[in-house]
Design a protein around this nucleic acid. Structure first.
Length: 153
DNA sequence: GCCAACGTTGGC
DNA sequence: GCCAACGTTGGC
């Protein structure tokens, strides 16, 4: 069982958007970064727990928990010329881009802010707090996961 | 295979 | 809106 953190801009997709989806599920489309793709394709497994992080907004931070309910499969939006995530180089017979499905688990009782996370020596190894980090999906160790959750109260 | 130019991410 | 950091592209 692994833990993860995934970023999303709440203006395009927030924890409330996920909560309000039918079945509270959504596919995590639009990832166009090879490192992130590899994690979705190879490492994210059914039942893995995932923090949702809101980026590029007024209150940056971890807002909720999701669960992987479908493992890596082709991101079909890459084949749709009308979609902004269209990638003409992705061949449907050999798809370049992958995605997973996630399900809403819960919203945290408060946002655990980026500012707060950066202050904690326990989290110095977390990719999120490193300067210039642009990965939209990153692993979170069990120790980091538990520590972050302990901040919620 | 190098690396400059370019586009994107994302905090501030 | 700015801009640093980073990934990708493409000429050589």
């Amino acid at each position: 069982m692994n833990n993860w953190l995934m970023k999303s801009e709440p203006e395009s997709f927030s924890i409330d958007d996920l909560k309000n989806r039918p079945n509270q599920c959504e596919h995590w489309d639009g990832v166009r970064n090879y490192q992130a793709r590899n994690m979705m394709r190879d490492e994210m497994k059914l039942g893995d727990q995932v923090f949702l992080y809101h980026s590029n907004c007024d209150e940056l931070g971890i807002v909720g928990i999701m669960e992987v309910v479908k493992e890596g499969y082709p991101d079909f939006l890459a084949f749709d010329p009308d979609d902004s995530h269209f990638d003409p180089k992705s061949d449907p017979a050999k798809p370049t881009w992958m995605m997973v499905d996630v399900k809403y688990v819960r919203t945290l009782s408060r946002t655990i802010t980026l500012h707060e996370l950066k202050q904690k020596p326990e989290l110095s190894g977390l990719a999120l707090v490193r300067r210039g980090n642009r990965l939209s999906i990153m692993p979170v160790s069990k120790a980091q996961w538990d520590f972050i959750l302990s901040l919620e109260q």
